[in-house]
Design a binder for these strands. Structure first.
Lengths: 148, 148
DNA sequence: TTCCTTATTGCAAGTATTTGCAATAAGGAA
DNA sequence: TTCCTTATTGCAAATACTTGCAATAAGGAA
């Protein structure tokens, strides 16, 4: 089954109605290689049909996220970005200084996930988590600055 | 030394100018018990002086965050929230459904921090990280829903 | 197939946040 | 102390995102 029909089937079972707009939005994120913004999803949908509105795109993406069918990442600077879940899990390391994005191995999060589950009964979305910090390059240049 | 003067000293050393606005904003977040929004910081500053502008508050808070002197958390729903660092570290668990906030023990993150440092040279801000997911209560009610 | 209920949409207005630019003022140099 | 450079501010406009509400249409019932 294609990722799109899996997603729409899931929604249908939860009682959501399947509209043209929703199908287009799901197709767009499912077929995108990268995480993309709401604005980009809107542009893509508009290529195929004029039946789309930016507010609907925002609402649908947030709904997919709430249902656990898409991931949502705040990359700082108004960069909120979505992706379908068939992308393999990974950690986004976002540099506070240069905004660079580094992908890290999600294995590092397994013990955390287990602890949050047993201790708090909380099912964490760790497939696509964003972690802010300072990358190696920016650390170096800030050290240089201090030496001067 | 008070948290405020530590912060301003740090900024001065980095070459930032210390303005009345910055002092007021630093005082506000340093004395706040809770994480607070830019709007709340602005309201607090305004109580003491009319010399303040919302844009300046946003700029200053982001600057403090970039310098690693404050933390910044996206709690979803346009809830971006700041705090000074003297608050003990903790994890925010944010429920995707009910937006409830649970504080978790930051100890769970130590091994992750080390791994990101050794593997990627990335210094992660894990003192006040937000993790999205589904809380125990919402998981229960969604299971009930399925049974019906 | 037609009808009905109500979830979903589009629109326009609202809130949250960022940005360009001219005016101001911090803090080092004279 | 005064002057000068330029970082910082305030303003107003731009962008990003959300929301209320009337109009539309999905999908189950008849």
């Amino acid at each position: 089954m294609s990722p799109c029909s899996t997603l729409t089937e899931h929604l249908r079972q939860k009682g959501y109605r399947i509209t043209l707009q929703r199908e287009m939005i799901i197709q767009t994120i499912a077929h995108s290689e990268q995480h993309i913004s709401a604005e980009e999803v809107f542009a893509e949908v508009r290529k195929h049909t004029p039946a789309a509105n930016l507010a609907t795109v925002y609402r649908t993406l947030d709904m997919l996220w709430e249902e656990g069918l898409a991931c949502r990442n705040d990359l700082g600077e108004c960069r909120i970005v979505y992706a379908a879940l068939q992308h393999g899990p990974h950690i986004h390391l976002v540099c506070r200084y240069c905004n660079r994005l580094i992908d890290a191995d999600p294995q590092a999060l397994e013990s955390l996930r287990e602890e949050l589950d047993t201790e708090y009964g909380f099912t964490a979305d760790l497939q696509h988590i964003s972690i802010f910090g300072v990358c190696a390059g920016c650390q170096l240049s800030s050290e240089k600055l201090k030496e001067e």
